[in-house]
Design a protein around this nucleic acid. Sequence first.
DNA 1: GTCTATAAAGCGATAGAC
DNA 2: GTCTATCGCTTTATAGAC
Lengths: 198, 198
Amino acid sequence: MPPKRSAERHAEVLDAAIELIRQKGIDGTSLQDIADAVGIKKGSLNTYFSSKEELVELIQARFTEVAERELRLIGERTDLTPDQRLRELLYFHAEHCTLRVSSPVLVGFMQLWTSSSSPSGRHQPSVVREYQRVFEDAVAQCSRKRIFRKIDPVLTVNGLMGSMSWCAFWYNKDEHGPLRPLVDEIIDMAFDGLRAKG
Amino acid sequence: MPPKRSAERHAEVLDAAIELIRQKGIDGTSLQDIADAVGIKKGSLNTYFSSKEELVELIQARFTEVAERELRLIGERTDLTPDQRLRELLYFHAEHCTLRVSSPVLVGFMQLWTSSSSPSGRHQPSVVREYQRVFEDAVAQCSRKRIFRKIDPVLTVNGLMGSMSWCAFWYNKDEHGPLRPLVDEIIDMAFDGLRAKG
DNA sequence: GTCTATAAAGCGATAGAC
DNA sequence: GTCTATCGCTTTATAGAC
């Protein structure tokens, strides 16, 4: 394999690793698998990361970065009503779980994501906690504007995000077609149960 | 370690394996771990199963067996209205995912469960498919009795089961207390969106 | 039924030549 | 930047003594 410019190859390695982990999970993906996919030898991988643990951290960082940027963009949209904003947030989550992270690895990421990197303390606010807060705030705002009735935002978000995340388990593009209309219908049903009466 | 009666030891080995896999996942649990937990030597395990793959199949079979029995029992209860029956089914699923199979291993089981053992064909009706059918039938019956409005049972069940399964990710007994009231509240919100108008 | 011992394979990590 | 080669470790699986 001829040498390539570093940045280019670096991205290539990361992409291949993400795709393999998407299919087979972290434990199921060996460095040999990744090297084969890129077309280099296993030993050469240490140019791009010094250990498998570091590789996982790199992927995790990219995953988080993408999510946070998208969430911020949705939050900044002033053309949406609070419930429309919540809908966009939920759809993003469904898409993120379904299309970018497949079910085998979703739990792995959730665990990595949840576990605080700091060893001290027990249950620090983690990245996931902040991620979820965005959804809870959106629900609370819907309640405040009397679009939703008075509900527990945390429990509501847990229920809603479950319906979205679960798409990763049953949704198949070839079988079901585009994801958006399916998710919209699920959200419609859920929102109907949350709306203020009258 | 003194010899024990076969059936007794067999159950002991299976219980230990389930508990370890619950905590650390399938890949994260070695035969050495299981042998240590039972207090026998690794090599002795082949008395109870001939390979790790067979062990996983044994556990999977027990898991499925329990689920099917419980579902059948709920289905036979004549004291429940259709929506109450659906609620019990959903609660069972939440409990099954949350208390009996923890999040690290939930996906593993889902995959094993989903994948057909028969190599021919692509997407046979799997055990999961039949499991889900029970829920779809319960939803359809709610629609027929005009308790719910006219809705797509498949999509509805996917949404509802997602909310239930997701409990495995966020629910913590010490932090949240009993599971039942939380699940009931989520189901209340969801059912409110499904009820027939007027 | 349990043990010891070992085979055979795969893993991540690293050193050193080019 | 890539390769070869190898180390040290863990894994599953198996054979044979007691």
